[in-house]
């Protein structure tokens, strides 16, 4: 477990895997991945996604949860480019009650911390749909710099919308501890949701 200020980073398994079957078919997932086609993800798709991310040598899928153990969502880094030491980051706030909350911001800060302070990356990329204001606000508070606008780049809900590009350099990151001190994060005290029902294991039928 990697301990943050308002959240902890944990392996993406157990309850997270169950929640993902819902999360991967919801707005937060589509928005974070700029997933314009939003085909439904079946149980098998979700399972395969988790497996692929486990095997992914250029990326990772990390669960983040509130200090009371309530799962919030997924922290993702991907397309890590060894030579240039850069990767793309996204945060999926699966539990929409945490959308825009400081827990989600701390998730981003912890992801940045992991990428810069553990993986020693040089640069992080992030993209945002222009109407995803909470995410843009979190990127800015984390120190990301707006680097451009791809005009009418994405088909979205009957329209063509821009895609905002952001970047953060390792040299611009003051370190997690100092960053958190600057931001004075506040817990949102959301009640933990009830644990998801465990799926029944299919027993092998004697032949």
């Amino acid at each position: 477990m990697l301990e943050g200020t308002l959240v902890d980073l944990v392996p993406f398994e157990d309850d997270f895997a169950i929640y993902l079957e819902t999360w991967m078919n919801e707005e937060a997932w589509f928005r974070a991945h700029v997933w314009e086609r939003r085909e439904p993800h079946t149980e098998d798709d979700v399972k395969k996604y988790i497996e692929n991310m486990e095997k992914n040598e250029r990326g990772g899928l990390i669960g983040f949860q509130a200090k009371n153990g309530d799962p919030i969502g997924a922290l993702i880094f991907d397309h890590e480019w060894t030579r240039v030491r850069k990767a793309e980051v996204r945060v999926v706030v699966g539990d929409s009650r945490y959308e825009g909350a400081d827990e989600a911001l701390d998730g981003l800060l912890m992801l940045v911390r992991y990428c810069f302070e553990t993986r020693n990356l040089h640069r992080l990329d992030a993209v945002a749909l222009p109407f995803h204001e909470t995410w843009i606000e979190h990127l800015r508070r984390a120190g990301f710099v707006h680097e451009g606008t791809l005009r009418q780049h994405i088909r979205w809900d009957g329209d063509y919308v821009d895609l905002e590009m952001f970047g953060l350099l390792q040299s611009e990151w003051p370190g997690y501890v100092q960053k958190v001190a600057e931001l004075s994060l506040q817990p949102s005290d959301i009640e933990p949701k009830p644990k998801p029902e465990k799926k029944e294991q299919k027993e092998a039928q004697p032949s």
């Binding site: 030579r83 240039v84 850069k86 040089h122 640069r123 990329d125 710099v145 680097e147 451009g148 606008t149 791809l150 005009r151 590009m165 970047g167 350099l169």
Partner: peptide, 12 residues
Amino acid sequence: FRLEGRERQATL
């Protein structure tokens, strides 16, 4: 074509 984005230090 118009310049739309400049990713800083994005390659070596």
